[in-house]
Design a protein around this nucleic acid. Structure first.
Lengths: 334, 334
DNA sequence: GGGAAAAGTGTTACCGGTAACGCAGATCTT
DNA sequence: AAGATCTGCGTTACCGGTAACACTTTTCCC
């Protein structure tokens, strides 16, 4: 039995027209009569024709529907939601998602980009705006539509869809102050998309400084931002600075870990210590007190990024700087 | 300025050899002298040559390095981890991941498969073993290496990498009995990869039946399995059957939601009610009592699936049925 | 009713690699 | 020393679409 799939020519022969006419009918571009369409569609269906996108994308340069999407990771935080929303939107628009994770490592971003560019993608979605020299060179050489997500960049490479992290931190800082917190700490990690977690902390400190409160004590782990890291980060920080009355965490997972540590240490929030996170994780639902945090519209971010990218690819007008909602949830833990 | 990327021929001209020789050197296949290799590599680097995988995959059929991966979703449960592990392994082996989500909907699986097959992927990883008629027909016609993950299938289509869900449930049922539970309920959803959640429940019931305990009361929501659904599921079930002394949930997220409901209802686990989940979520860490659950080696599952698929693609020997560890965590909530 | 425009289709060339085969010169073998 | 084998490379054909253009035939319009 022959394993080869039927090609355009076979459909063309069956329908008694040329390859080109079949191509036009199937892409619904150019001119052809209704009768011809009928016949071509019927034969294509009968032969179980599956178009070869590889050939199409190869042949035309403009016909690629491959979109490269790179995020730090999928298994934690908000990126699962973001990628899911991106993929949903891309699928609906007729594009395919080629995924990658780089674990916050610029060299991995580079490796991934090199391999993805070899597929001549129609567009790219990258996380963050800080790229290595080589990455920037490749992007410049490729001249491919690009959306950078996560932090809002007012002077984007191409398009930026993200959040103003500085403002998130600043707003949270003011909340801490308004709730009477004065001896404040911060727990974060190095595994942080540049321009995000640290920038939130910068905004946070600015608010403290403006409020005349001494600078926050920090604990920055050389690790990724997860539950356990929050637990141990809180432990470290509080053993060094037992006087602290509140801690701002890099994200919700860490904040929840921190809460868990505090509970084992006999401290409850908000009475003995204030705890806040960032992100707006569903998991926070389990806490008996609502976690103080900043809720990010992760799905909206993904959807918006995908749609902006496709608009750019199709040369439709699109804003190059799109802010995504970040809502301070005062909660009950600060 | 010319935007076209340099092609093989340009490298060939620069190095003073033929296209074919360059191709051989770059793929490190066939014969060529060390001196030629040197020259070709140097020129390729100098010209910033980026191979066109589109052309390669198109031209040779065997050269595709595209792998299609389909999961129900990315934003919840264990699938983020699974996909991350798959992608890591595939990248390391030189393949690219084309992702898709189908939200537990067979028709979406079909749509996705049709679009992915058009890229002539080297292999596929699908979730679950139940497929629509049309999906099965496409898979049969494509004759592409295939790994089905999630539930272990002793008679796989091609390769199965997964968990024995029946045993998970059965083991949990015996634990419930050994802890003195007799009036037992179950909370699950319809959005369930066939052959997984329901099958765990089947195993669970079997254990109850073997123990002479009357059948579990069920609450099956027409929804997806998340925190809130666990909360409301528990509420519904307990209002209908206040006599229950324990509930088995479809997964950890639901169990944690159920715990949250019980707390608001003034019930604490394990004293007033037993609660167990499935999956082994990190988030469970926050609970003051360790959640009773079954821990799944999600990363190992992803990695194993990816490696098995590549072995099959490369015609290396590989087992067609690979079980993944599921470890009962007795915990403290039953 | 005759020229212009539109409709419908075919022809040709090409995208950038890889497989298959060929072939001259070097090396081995007995 | 003569055939056999190996080494290192080139040539040719082809993968399955799409762009660009050419060519009839029909429709339109003044």
């Amino acid at each position: 039995m022959d394993k080869r799939k039927p090609s355009l020519s076979e459909v063309a022969d069956a329908a008694g027209v040329s390859k080109m006419t079949v191509s036009r009918v199937l892409r619904n571009s150019g001119r052809f009569s209704d009768e011809t369409r009928e016949r071509v569609m019927r034969e294509a269906a009968r032969l179980n024709y599956v178009p070869n996108r590889l050939a199409a994308a190869f042949g035309s340069e403009t016909a690629s529907t491959l979109i490269g999407v790179l995020v730090p990771r999928l298994s934690s935080g908000l990126f699962g939601e973001v990628v899911e929303a991106i993929d949903l939107a891309l699928t609906r628009l007729g594009y395919q998602t080629m995924i990658g994770t780089f674990e916050h490592r610029p060299d991995q971003e580079e490796v991934w980009l090199r391999s993805v560019l070899a597929w001549r993608p129609a567009g790219l979605i990258l996380t963050g705006r800080a790229h290595s020299e080589a990455t920037r060179a490749m992007l410049a050489a490729a001249t491919v539509p690009l959306v950078e997500i996560w932090d809002l960049n007012t002077r984007p490479t191409d398009i930026s869809v993200g959040i103003n992290h500085f403002d998130c931190g600043h707003e949270m800082g003011r909340l801490f102050l308004s709730r009477g917190r004065r001896r404040i700490g911060y727990v974060g990690t190095e595994a942080d998309t540049p321009g995000t977690g640290r920038v939130r902390f910068d905004g946070f400190r600015r608010a403290l400084a403006d409020g005349g409160v001494s600078d926050a004590r920090q604990e920055v782990l050389n690790d990724r931002p997860g539950f356990y890291q929050g637990y141990y980060g809180a432990q470290n920080l509080l053993s060094r600075h037992p006087e602290l009355d509140s801690i701002y965490f890099q994200n919700d997972a860490m904040a929840i870990g921190g809460l868990a540590y505090c509970r084992t240490a006999g401290l409850s929030a908000p009475e003995d210590i204030g705890i806040a996170g960032w992100g707006g994780m569903d998991a926070a639902v389990i806490l008996d007190r609502r976690l103080t945090t900043t809720k990010i519209a992760a799905r909206a971010l993904g959807k918006t990024a995908a749609e902006a990218l496709i608009a750019r690819i199709r040369d439709e007008p699109v804003s190059d700087t799109i802010g995504i909602d970040a809502l301070l949830i005062p909660g009950e833990t600060v």
